[in-house]
Design a protein around this nucleic acid. Structure first.
Lengths: 201, 201, 201, 201
DNA sequence: AATGAATGAGGCTTCATTCAT
DNA sequence: GATGAATGAAGCCTCATTCAT
């Protein structure tokens, strides 16, 4: 056909040059380190020892590089939402959402951190829009719009406490796995308390 | 050459230059709306109907504009930290920290949101460094390094739950004041639980 | 206010730097010599011994440079059309149109030649659209839509014979003024014949 | 090695490569529509659903594609000139030149229009040089260098009135064939008048 | 208290072209 | 009879900043 620039369909051809993948890797590293705007294509190209034009063989635009990377986060998010929409709105479901969300986050921690730290930039990119709408959907699934405000805030905080966790625990000593578990637990507690406060409040 | 660019010395002449203030206002608006990098001095100048050069009469650099704005947040933060350092590390103190922090945040909500959404950019600016170190100091004051990890995470989450609150509650219906109170309450609860879990855990 | 980039209103300020005018001059020279696309802003800037960025102080885009130049032709064209629309559709009027058109053309001969030779490029620029619609208007004024096709063709040919004249007479020897007069005369003859053929045909 | 890129040797194998022809077709379409410079090889390739590299199998350069297309016009022009050079310089010959020229023009109307609208570009390409020299030769054959300037202008105008006709008659209503005939007639008249004016002037 | 004019650096993107396979 | 991958050159444009007035 011509130029690539699409996601490799299915199991891809054998060794179709791994440059595409290398670009994504290096780009994510630099985006995460310095921010999206401050990372130039020149820099990415230099780090890979190719020319800027080579990047354009593999991706249509700078944003396209980012979009392609962001799929790693966007896809599991979509899947999580799809799954959750098929479940009862029970506490058990909500807690399972948090568990799965935790896995997703820690599975793409660099990418996620990048999105967090570049929200202003990413906001008007497709990537940002997608992420925002995913978060909104998740919010709807975890809170009960008929509950008192305090309970709703608690639920939503559960979700976001896991974001905060990723940043904040840099200042807390301890085994990473243990911290991660602690963060999740705080979140699980919060939804549980939200539920309870509805009943007893 | 006798240009200003210093902090207005206290209450000097009341009308010392209203342009300076207008620049800060417009700049914050634009920074918050579009991000720091994507806001050019040209844009700011145009919005004010002055030339770019005029901005340089009032501020040494672009970063300088931001720094001057950020003082609104940085000063109260310093004050809060100074106050807290003189208090006992009791639960009551921690909760008062959260209450005061809440006031500070909602008092500069636009600026704060801006910093949150431009972390990658702001990170290597003085503004960002200051903010990070303030947050770190606050973290130290609110958590007990000898407590179990779960308790520490809970404490730190208390702090950050208030950040999340500012963004998240856009999707929760209800009176702003009520939401704000709910957010604070969740935070107060979290520190309280941290304390308890230490005792009972 | 800020940057210029508008036509100097009325009789302009004294010596507001003639760079703007120099840019226009050099640009027209180069556009005419090499074509619009093949002339880069780098070239124009180098020829003027300024930086590319200086061009952008005076003009918003490359196209803007061209547009500003083209006003020299566009304004008199608009005036001619406005005038003609207020006249009776007589042969005398049509011949006067041709005379005035001749003056306009020879008054901006380089610009006109440029537009002729860069039609494909200029077509989707404001400049080109304007020129096309002016020519169309002039066409309507010079031909009689109820006349036989042959007559209409003759009229329209009168108009365009003057364009051709500008290029073609490079291969005809003789005094420029005399050639110019000859070209106009052929055109005047053509409208006259168009009229006659209607009557007698 | 062993690639084609030569003119198809006469009737060789009938199906020697239909891609070559398709490239020429699509290229002409795009060149005519958007101009030579603004049409990229990428565009041509995409429209044909082949890669850019494929174009280079069939043609040495972008210009080469154009040159190969232009032969359609260049060959008949050469033939016309060769024929005319063997004829007496009579009015009948001149009129026959115009008739044949009309046929050539309308036989390659898209290509011709393209050359007209891209003169600046084409000027320094072989294609343009050829065309210019053909026009010059035709000019010499149709005018009498010893005639008064007015007569010479009239003759040359005859030739170019047919170019103008191709563009201009878009705004004249009527059957295409009839218009075409009218255009030719105006041209034939013009040479005739040129002759007469010599005799009677 | 501000403007007019300009600069140097660098950004993203596109293009014609090449060459090994 | 083509593709995949890449290059080098260049394009237009924008930005923060400077400085004489």
């Amino acid at each position: 056909m011509g130029t690539p620039q699409q996601e490799p369909q299915s199991q891809a051809q054998p060794r179709r040059s791994d440059t595409r993948r290398r670009i994504q890797q290096v780009a994510l590293e630099l985006f995460a380190e310095q921010g999206y705007e401050k990372t130039s294509l020149r820099e990415i190209a230099e780090r890979l020892d190719v020319t800027k034009a080579a990047l354009y063989y593999h991706f249509k635009t700078k944003e396209d590089i980012l979009s392609s990377i962001a799929e790693d986060l966007a896809r599991p998010m979509r899947e999580l939402i799809a799954w959750a929409e098929g479940q009862p709105h029970s506490l058990a479901t909500k807690q399972e959402i948090l568990r799965r969300y935790s896995d997703i986050l820690w599975g793409s921690v660099d990418l996620f951190r990048f999105i967090q730290e570049n929200q202003a930039t990413v906001r008007e990119l497709t990537v940002g829009e997608n992420f925002r709408s995913s978060m909104k959907a998740l919010g709807e699934l975890i809170k009960d719009p008929s509950a008192p405000i305090a309970a709703q805030v608690r639920s939503v905080t559960a979700l976001f406490s896991m974001h905060a966790g990723m940043f904040v625990t840099q200042n807390v000593e301890g085994d990473p796995e243990e911290k991660r578990a602690a963060i999740l637990e705080v979140a699980l507690d919060l939804v549980a308390q939200a539920e309870t406060s509805v009943l007893t409040g």
